[in-house]
Design a protein around this nucleic acid. Structure first.
Length: 802
RNA sequence: GGGGAUGUGGUGGAACUGGUAGACACGCUUGGCUUAGAACCAAGUGCCGAAAGGUGUGGGGGUUCGACUCCCUCCAUCCCUACCA
């Protein structure tokens, strides 16, 4: 053994060499391009294990692609606006700007120490005006396309702090700082018409090379459903309440109609009725988050209003119910207790009649949610649900009682946030009338804060707000999802101040592989897809989808729980990088679980990764490549090693490229290393043995280099005298070497393994059968029993059924 | 409440298309080396059993010659739920 493996100095030297030669700065060329993007981080201050995992995955794939002669672009930047900066500012009296920029500097050093092959010349920060000025322009362009409008929307209101709270700032219905019972409040906000793209967002999912579960989540989120809008005339009035239903076949079972507490009618009724206004206040004592609303007790209040059933003309009571959402459809639902779980529970609680109108064969316990045969439905009796849906739709259309309708669950995107640390919404109010600013009036820069002062919302910043006596600026900032909805397109042009998307964006888009946490499966990815399609329709990008392929990684857990500061179970990656080196941390991250799965952090496994790299070091360090040609007469043992080397190469390439299964790739490289016979490593080894060992070492270094680029580069440069880089090419395996004359056959009796044997490939099925019946254990198990059936699966298994 | 996942030894995980369950590691046990330890090396290691053998992939049921894999059902955990990012 010559030298000791000392990762820190090796990694430092190699990283600075990369930096000096600008190795990962790329330009368009005539190779095939590969844009590999990992979700950019929120600069929280320190890198956490989730980042390390995410970015190592992206880097491994980028490096593998580069070795396979792709022109690879892998950028990195900062999702720099957001709530934590404001919280930190309040807690520590630092400006969000200062805090964020310091965090970025620190995290950048950490990322660099991991040896990630980023093109830092295209770094971007969403909090820079050079970035968000384009975002303001996109907003203006969206407005020109008719994709922007204003409407009221509900927010969490903290009546003590007099501020709007994010959902995560509401804990058990109370404001996290004030502890006050929060209220739902409606305020005017800007919206983007993502629903204009609902149909395309749904259908084009089919062509994406994305994980099926993510596509399913998006499909369900968009939630296309066909049904009917049915009009219920209010008693003694010309007005109607309109309710959407996917089950017009249950129309005869309607026994109440429920409206949202925020519905105009509810609010009007409350004006002259104290118990209704009390009830509405009660309904508003909940967080605006869907999960909280769904968990809240179902509350109802029966009004004096009644509506007329469109067919039976019976009078139906109108209730106000807290489970009816205003932003959802029409804010009115028709209650069919016999055939809807929630309506059933509501009717039971308030003694509302439950009228069964659907019958099924097996079970007639209410509520019956599935389709069946109609009963108690006058002329529609006896029809199947599916027929009745069509007939009832026809009937209501004919009698102008409603319309057939395709409805989406997807709602328009409210983008107004009542916060300081975000991109100012480029609008003004002239005598109270909103106007989106023209391109020539942009950008609207976020006003700087005095050092050491807590952030004040723009709504209280009079210098910023008041342009003249009758012209005020918009005080809200954009949802930070706006910032991350188009950054992937900006990256290639990040250093271009004259164009939003220059030629570089054209060349690199779309993203070939996007890697990030599964928690972004819906919102971020859907918003980005919407942006991309809207940009495409303005000829600003020329593809239909932003991310061709998607890899969603699972979370890093400790003690079975998500690492979080509040649980006190965080593990700081930096201390491990310092102690073991980046290569070990990267190797551990890739070895210990497949990317999609959540990963349980374990200290001792890091030791294992480190141990393996030491073995690789001890194998290759100090050795020089022998310039042999391969015209040896190989022994069986030598051939076996060669076969193992080539088989491993084949498997690893497939694991990297197709399966993203880095853990099994590493496992097979470990197997190869373990497979090398000891005598091949000694000085007495024959030339043929040296040749086989050299081949194995070349492959091991090559295969490991995407994961552990530093140690492999160092060993490679010692192994070869020719100054080439370990990552300059990917080897090709020899298919011919993989062919074997024999295979191992598993012999089963009644599905239980009773023996294994080596069979020559030239044997026929009949010969194999005779051969395996000679195996003692097989013969004794079958004994005198009659063989009823023989199942032979080629070169795998033979099963005797007795 | 709704949507999406996951569940395999003491631990992380493997088994890719219904065909040998537990690859590869960690840990542990025994032995070697060592004044001792660390490191390293060798052997062993799902469970029950002395062995033969039996049994085993969250629980229960089903399909099949054969099920971690497909179907039904139940349980547990995690992610998202439109203002955390």
């Amino acid at each position: 053994m010559n030298k000791q493996y000392e990762p820190s100095s090796i990694e430092r030297d190699i990283q600075s060499a990369w930096e000096d030669e600008k190795k990962y700065q790329v330009k368009a060329d005539n190779r095939e391009k590969f844009y590999c993007l990992s979700m950019f981080p929120y600069p929280s201050g320190k890198l956490h294990m989730g980042h390390v995992r995410n970015y190592t995955i992206g880097d491994v794939i980028s490096r593998f692609k580069r070795m396979n002669n792709f022109n690879v672009f892998q950028p990195m930047g900062w999702d720099a606006f957001g709530l934590p900066a404001e919280n930190a500012a309040i807690a520590n009296k630092v400006s969000p700007d200062e805090w964020t920029r310091e965090n970025i500097e620190h995290m950048k050093v950490q990322l660099k120490s991991l040896g990630l092959s980023y093109d830092w010349s295209k770094e971007l920060k969403t909090c820079d005006a050079s970035y968000y000025k384009w975002e303001q322009l996109i907003f203006k362009k969206f407005a020109d396309q008719g994709l922007v409008y204003r409407k009221k929307a509900i927010v969490n209101w903290d009546p003590v702090d007099n501020t709007v709270l994010a959902n995560e700032q509401v804990i058990d219905g109370k404001g996290w700082r004030s502890g006050a019972q929060i209220e739902i409040k409606e305020i005017d906000q800007w919206f983007l018409k993502i629903t204009d793209y609902a149909e395309e967002l749904l259908t084009s999912l089919d062509e994406l090379d994305w994980p099926e579960n993510v596509k399913t989540m998006q499909r369900n989120w968009i939630g296309k459903s066909s049904g009917a809008e049915i009009k219920y005339q209010l008693e003694n009035s010309d007005n109607f309440l309109t309710a959407f239903t996917t089950r017009p076949d249950t129309l005869f079972g309607v026994s109440f109609v429920a409206i949202s507490p925020n519905h105009k009618i509810s609010i009007d009724l409350a004006k002259n009725n104290e118990s209704i206004s009390d009830f509405l206040l009660q309904c508003n004592e909940t967080s605006a988050a869907e999960a909280d609303m769904a968990k809240a007790e179902k509350l109802g209040f029966q009004t004096d209003l009644r509506v007329i059933h469109p067919i039976t003309k019976e009078m139906i009571p109108v209730w106000i119910a807290n489970f009816v959402l205003l932003d959802y459809g029409t804010g009115v639902v028709m209650g069919v207790p016999a055939h809807d779980q929630r309506d059933y529970e509501f009717a039971k609680k308030y003694n509302i009649p439950i009228n069964q109108v659907i019958e099924v064969n097996k079970n007639n316990e209410l509520p019956i949610l599935e389709k069946g045969k109609l009963i108690n439905s006058s002329q529609f009796n006896g029809m199947s649900s599916d027929d009745a849906i069509e007939k009832i739709k026809e009937h209501i259309k004919e009698h102008q009682l409603g319309t057939e309708l395709i409805q989406f669950r997807l709602r328009d995107w409210g983008i107004s946030r009542q916060r300081y640390w975000g991109c100012p919404i480029p609008a003004v109010y002239e005598d109270g009338i909103p106007r989106i600013l023209e391109e020539s009036e942009l950008p609207v820069e976020l006003p700087k804060l005095k050092e050491g002062s807590a952030p004040i919302p723009l709504s209280k910043n009079q210098d910023f707000l008041n342009l003249s006596s009758n012209v005020k600026r918009e005080a809200d900032t954009f949802d930070t999802f706006m910032d991350s909805s188009w950054y992937y397109a900006r990256f290639p042009s990040a250093d271009n101040d004259d164009e939003m998307f220059g030629e570089d964006s054209n060349y690199w888009l779309p993203v070939d592989l996007y890697i990030g946490g599964i928690e972004h499966a819906i919102l971020h990815l859907l918003y980005s897809r919407f942006f991309h399609k809207a940009l495409r329709d303005m000829n600003m990008v020329d593809s239909d989808e932003p991310f061709k392929r998607l890899l969603t990684q699972g979370m890093v857990l400790k003690d079975g729980a998500k690492m979080s500061k509040s649980k006190g179970n965080t593990v700081d990656p930096q201390s491990y990088i310092d102690r073991y080196g980046a290569d070990t941390v990267r190797l551990y991250m890739m070895f210990t679980a497949p990317p999609e799965q959540s990963l349980e952090w374990s200290e001792s496994s890091v030791e294992g990764a480190s141990r393996f790299l030491k073995k690789v070091w001890n194998l290759a360090e100090g050795r020089k490549y022998n310039e042999f040609s391969d015209d040896f007469e190989f022994t069986k043992e030598e051939l076996a090693l060669r076969r193992k080397s080539h088989a491993t190469l084949k498997k690893v390439a497939n694991d990297y490229e197709v399966r993203f299964a880095f853990n099994t790739a590493i496992a097979s490289i470990m197997e190869l290393l373990n497979f090398i016979p000891e005598e091949f490593k000694t000085s007495n080894a024959t030339d043929a043995q040296k040749f086989c060992l050299d081949e194995a070492i070349v492959y091991i270094l090559k295969m490991l280099s995407p994961i552990t680029p530093h140690i492999t580069e160092y060993l490679w440069s010692e192994f070869f005298i020719d100054n080439s880089s370990v990552d300059s090419w990917w080897p090709e395996f020899n298919e011919g070497l993989l062919e074997v004359q024999e295979f191992e056959l598993v012999v089963q009796v009644n599905g239980k393994v009773r023996g294994k044997t080596i069979i020559n490939k030239s044997f026929s099925e009949e010969e194999i059968k005779l051969e395996v019946l000679k195996i003692e254990n097989v013969a004794s198990t079958i004994a005198d029993n009659k063989i009823k059936k023989v199942i032979y699966i080629k070169e795998k298994i033979i099963n005797f059924v007795i």
